[in-house]
Simulated assay, not measured.
Amino acid sequence: MAKKIKTPSKFQAAFYHPKYWGIWLGVGILRLLGLLPYQYKFKVGRVLGKLMYQLAFKRRKIALKNIRIAFPEKKPAEQKALLKAHFVSLGMSFAEMALIWHGDHKRNHQKAFERSIVRYKGEQNLFNAIKQEHGVLILAPHFTTLEVTGLFVSFLTNYHAVYRPHDNPFMDYLIAEGRSIEFASGERVEPVSNANTRLMLKVLKKGGAMTFLPDQKYRSKGSIMVPLFGKECPSNPATSKIAKLTGCAVVPTFTRRIEDDSGIHYEVTFLPALDNFPSGDDYQDTLRLHHLYEDAVRQAPEQYLWVHNRWDLKL
């Protein structure tokens, strides 16, 4: 029997059940954050991050072990400082989620305020890949800026987002709703489950664009061990396989949060579409991608998602 593909959850009256009240509390906090002026959102986000650092012991432990693997040359005090900065960055990502859910783009995508807080580098690389009409896989690794990356890409082109369905149906609904995009053209596009390979291939074969998040721990069928920061970890070779099946261009994309005298703003960098990709060697392709991720992480190390158990460590 064919495996049933999970589609994004729809809102259900059952979500009002008390077992979901904790999630509703989080939704309420995001709504309140959404009401605050832009820069004040991030002040609250920093406080939330510092609070998470104190309370999330297990995640703090995972993050510190990951940081020690990635930056063994740093002194213990420097590693701990990076750990604290990472949790602040995590807290600021909640402010960004509030922006995604309740930002100006929801009312006016074409002239949204959020267009003024981002600058692009290498956007012509994306446009060149789109012009080839063979589909574009926009690789966006797991940085704490992940949610706003999708919004900023939507200002340049229509695309489909790929996401991992959540086991909790209410959380799945919220994630899918947050990653659904209503473009200036009026077209609303819901995210695609990462298990729905058929739909992913269909979008790319038609020349569409799709964001893809390939960098987290992967222990399912087809997993391969590939070094990241010099230490092997279970990795997903799906990027190579999708590119081989569709002939799509692969454009690595990285978003960096910048804080200066003018406040918080962002820089989205599109690298040139990868040449000779796939090469026919999934290991070498994945290693090549890992080197690109490493370079991006070193530019803003506190903004990578260190709380994920990337190396499948025993805790």
Rank of each mutant, 00 (worst) to 15 (best):
A238W: 00
P272E: 01
V192I: 15
I67H: 04
Y293V: 10
G207M: 00
K10A: 11
L55E: 03
E123M: 11
L48E: 08
K80I: 12
G103T: 04
N196W: 12
I175W: 11
K106H: 05
K206P: 12
A70F: 06
L51S: 12
N158Y: 03
E73G: 07
A161L: 02
F42N: 01
A77T: 10
L90F: 00
L55K: 10
K41A: 03
Q124C: 04
K75Q: 14
W101A: 10
F57D: 15
C233A: 15
E114S: 02
L126G: 04
K217R: 15
E294Y: 02
K202R: 13
W306T: 09
L245R: 14
E147Q: 12
R198P: 01
E96D: 14
A161W: 00
M1N: 13
I23F: 05
K84Y: 02
F11G: 05
I5V: 15
I138S: 06
K58M: 11
V44A: 15
K206S: 15
F183W: 06
A14K: 12
S180I: 03
Y173W: 13
L90G: 03
M52C: 14
G122H: 02
Q216M: 12
W311A: 09
S185I: 06
K206C: 09
G207Y: 00
G34P: 07
I130L: 12
D215I: 02
T253S: 11
A70S: 12
M200P: 00
Q299K: 13
L139K: 04
Y40N: 10
K106I: 08
R219K: 13
L305E: 06
A2G: 14
V148N: 09
P234H: 04
A273C: 01
H265M: 06
F143C: 04
F254Y: 12
K75T: 13
I138Q: 06
V268K: 03
V27N: 05
K75S: 14
F183H: 07
I29D: 08
K10N: 11
V118P: 00
Q132G: 10
K80T: 15
G22T: 07
A70G: 08
S93G: 02
L156M: 10
L146H: 06
T157M: 04
